[in-house]
Structure formats: structure tokens, C-alpha cells
């Protein structure tokens, strides 16, 4: 019982310090100096270099949803709903969540490792002695990049996921290509896309925040950097799934 209580307080104080870290970074966003070059670097890392993994993930998940829902729905003679099911599941859920998880593993981990190494080799301290605020220099560009890049990435994933469903639908399930696409277009609602991109922005922010927080506060040499990297990925993944529920509740629950 006592152990549960301790764990609870520990989690709470951790959440508190992450929130403070994030808020502190946010206050720096509007105050100069701005590091445009670092923002662009982080943005390219988040978007362009994540494109291959995220694209593959999206295509395959669209394909598998088409296949699975056909297996289930054809029993009720509802196979014509496949394009709609693929659309909803990909755009509302799979594209943002899977892109978030992929980026957490790719970029969030790298961020934690980079900032962690900078911490344990005194590079972050050195920034302070060279008239540079390390939060502004290291954290702010990454948070901005994550928040702005993920929607772009997820937009691509949305399209590719739907195309994955279309691929399986036409090649294997006997859909007419034109009908499949028309069905999809008819069913498409702008709200779904808005939610998809909003989720993406939140997840991108979370990935960057976790990468920066754990890296920035890492301690104790190579082992500490390793722990920071693991923690960044694990906590970002959990937060993505938790916030996914919260956002879905917010937008779609009646």
C-alpha cells in the first residue's frame, strides 16, 4: 500500500516537473533570439527523414484494415463499407498514432541521446557560459519542429493509408477502382482530417517534449544516456496512446 502511494507521488512529481519544463520552454518561444537554422534541421529530421518509415507503416496498416474488415463484414453482407472503414480507421486513428509511435522511436530517441550526451559531457553547461540559453537553443526549436512537422507527415500517411486499402480492395477483394475511390471521397469529412492533423500536432509535441526532457535531465554517463533514451521512447508512446483517447473523447464522443 505504502509502495503504491510512493509510486503515485513519484509519478505525480514527475508529471509536474515535465509540465514545468514544457511551460518554461513555451515562454521562450516568443522571446528572441530565435534559432531558425536549428528549427529547420529538426523539422527536416522529423518530416523528411521519417517519411520512409511512416509511409510504409501507413500503407501496410491500410492494407491490413481492408483485409481484416472484409473478413469480418462480408459475413453480414456489408463488404461495401470497406472503403469507409479504411478511411475512418486510417485517418482518425492509425495514421496519427502509428506515425507518432514511429517518430517517437526514431526522432524522440535520437533527441534524448543527443541532449543526454550534451548534458553528461558538459556541453549544456558550456552553452550557458557562452551567453546562450540552452532551453532556447536546444529545446524550443525541437518542440516547434515536432508540433509542426507531424501534421505534414500524417497528411501523407492519411493518403497512403487509404491507398493501401484501395490496393488490397481492388487487387484482392474485387472492388472496382473507380467505385472504391468515389466511395472514399463521398464519405470523407473535413472534420476527420482536422482531427487527424490536430492529433498529429499534439503527438509531435509530446515526442519532442519527452525526448528533450529526458535528454536534458539525464545523469551519469553513458548508462544515464541509455536510460534517458529508453524513458523518452516509452513515456512518449504511453502519452501518445493516452492523449489519443482523450482527444477522441473530446472530438467524437456524443
Amino acid at each position: 500500500m505504502a509502495a503504491v502511494g510512493r509510486g503515485f507521488w513519484l509519478a505525480l512529481s514527475m508529471a509536474g516537473s515535465i509540465a514545468l519544463f514544457g511551460l518554461n520552454a513555451l515562454t521562450h518561444i516568443v522571446r528572441p533570439p530565435f534559432y531558425g537554422r536549428l528549427f529547420v534541421q529538426a523539422f527536416v529530421e522529423f518530416s523528411y527523414f521519417s517519411l520512409p518509415v511512416v509511409s510504409l507503416t501507413a500503407v501496410f496498416s491500410g492494407m491490413v484494415i481492408a483485409l481484416q474488415s472484409y473478413a469480418g463484414f462480408s459475413r453480414y453482407g456489408a463488404a461495401t463499407a470497406i472503403p469507409n472503414i479504411v478511411l475512418i480507421s486510417v485517418v482518425r486513428e492509425l495514421a496519427p498514432v502509428l506515425a507518432g509511435l514511429m517518430v517517437a522511436g526514431r526522432v524522440g530517441a535520437a533527441m534524448a541521446a543527443e541532449l543526454g550526451t550534451m548534458r553528461v559531457t558538459d556541453q549544456i553547461d558550456a552553452l550557458t557560459t557562452l551567453s546562450t540559453n540552452p532551453v532556447k537553443y536546444l529545446v524550443v526549436p525541437r518542440l516547434l519542429a515536432g508540433t509542426l512537422a507531424l501534421p505534414l507527415l500524417v497528411l501523407v500517411a492519411d493518403v497512403l493509408g487509404v491507398m493501401g486499402g484501395w490496393l488490397v480492395g481492388t487487387a484482392k477483394l474485387g472492388f472496382n477502382s473507380h467505385t472504391y475511390l468515389m466511395n472514399t471521397m463521398d464519405f470523407l469529412q473535413s472534420m476527420d482530417v482536422v482531427v487527424s492533423l490536430a492529433k498529429a500536432a499534439v503527438f509531435g509535441f509530446l515526442v519532442a517534449l519527452m525526448g528533450c526532457y529526458h535528454g536534458y535531465n539525464s545523469r551519469g554517463g553513458a548508462v544515464g544516456v541509455g536510460t534517458a533514451t529508453t524513458n523518452a521512447v516509452v513515456s512518449a508512446s504511453i502519452l501518445i496512446l493516452a492523449f489519443d483517447y482523450v482527444l477522441t473523447e473530446l472530438f467524437f464522443a456524443q
Binding site: M118, T121, D122, Q123, D125, A126, L127, T128, T129, L130, S131, N133
Partner: peptide, 17 residues
């Protein structure tokens, strides 16, 4: 920060970026 910017520091391990 203003005071710090008047101090130049060589770290023991170099701490190069």
C-alpha cells in the same frame, strides 16, 4: 546571465559542441 557572459570557461573535458 549578464555576469556569466563576462566569464570564459575551459571545461576539464573540453565540452566542445
Amino acid at each position: 546571465d549578464a555576469v556569466r557572459s563576462t566569464i570564459g570557461m575551459l571545461f576539464q573535458n573540453g565540452a566542445l559542441f
